[in-house]
Each structure stands twice: as structure tokens, then as C-alpha cells.
């Protein structure tokens, strides 16, 4: 994962997540996401799971953390291209109630 995986398009920060999202990777993702949220004042965050094959509860923590940061200003969080396993984890944790999961 490098800087190209963070892209700001209009009011959206798009994060292309790595193949495996776990605790080891979570600090890097959260840190950079927050830097962009502050610097570019984006109000929405899109998590792109195209490359992701594994995620554990650390991923839930990353998404929840970003949601807390932007939702109070009316921002939204989206999850796109999540495969069956990832979707299962998103639903099991109840995140589907606060973020939008799309194809």
C-alpha cells in the first residue's frame, strides 16, 4: 500500500485497501486517512475493497474510527467492491447500519 492508494476526488476520499486488512496495517491506513480528511477537508470516505481478500475486526475499527470523525459534519462512509467474506464481516459487526455498502 502506498500514497497512490489514497485519492481525493471532489468531496470524497477514496482509499484502496490492501490485500489483507489487519491490526498490523491498521495504523498506517488510519493515520493517512485522517491526514487527508484534515488537509483536504473531505467530508466523505470511500473504502475500496477491490484488492482485499482478508479483513478481521481491526478493519471494523478503522471504518468505525473514520465514521466517527466525519459523521458529525454530515459526511458519509461507503464500502465498495467488498466480496462475500468481507460483506459478512461488515454485516456481522452491524456496520451496514451506519455505512453504505455498494457493489
Amino acid at each position: 500500500m502506498d500514497m497512490e492508494d489514497f485519492q481525493v476526488i471532489d468531496d470524497y476520499l477514496c482509499i484502496r485497501l490492501p490485500e489483507e486488512v489487519d491490526h498490523h496495517k491498521s495504523a498506517y491506513i488510519s493515520e493517512n486517512a485522517d491526514r487527508y480528511i484534515l488537509k483536504d477537508r473531505v467530508s466523505n470516505v470511500v473504502f475500496d475493497f477491490s484488492d482485499t481478500q482478508f479483513m478481521d475486526s481491526s478493519g471494523i475499527g478503522i471504518i468505525m474510527g473514520r465514521y466517527k470523525k466525519i459523521s458529525c459534519f454530515g459526511g458519509k462512509v461507503f464500502a465498495i467492491h467488498a466480496d462475500r467474506q468481507i460483506r459478512r464481516i461488515l454485516y456481522m459487526s452491524g456496520l451496514n447500519k451506519i455505512i453504505e455498502i455498494m457493489e
Binding site: S26, S30, S57, I60, G61, I62, M64, G65, M92, S93
Partner: peptide
């Protein structure tokens, strides 16, 4: 503070 979701044991159980 580490953004742990508190879902660890719940996932193991599930």
C-alpha cells in the same frame, strides 16, 4: 484509543 472495535471474541465465537 487504538480503535479496537471490541468484536474480537464475538468473531471467534461466530
Amino acid at each position: 484509543e487504538l480503535e479496537r472495535s471490541g468484536m474480537g471474541f464475538a468473531f471467534m465465537e461466530a
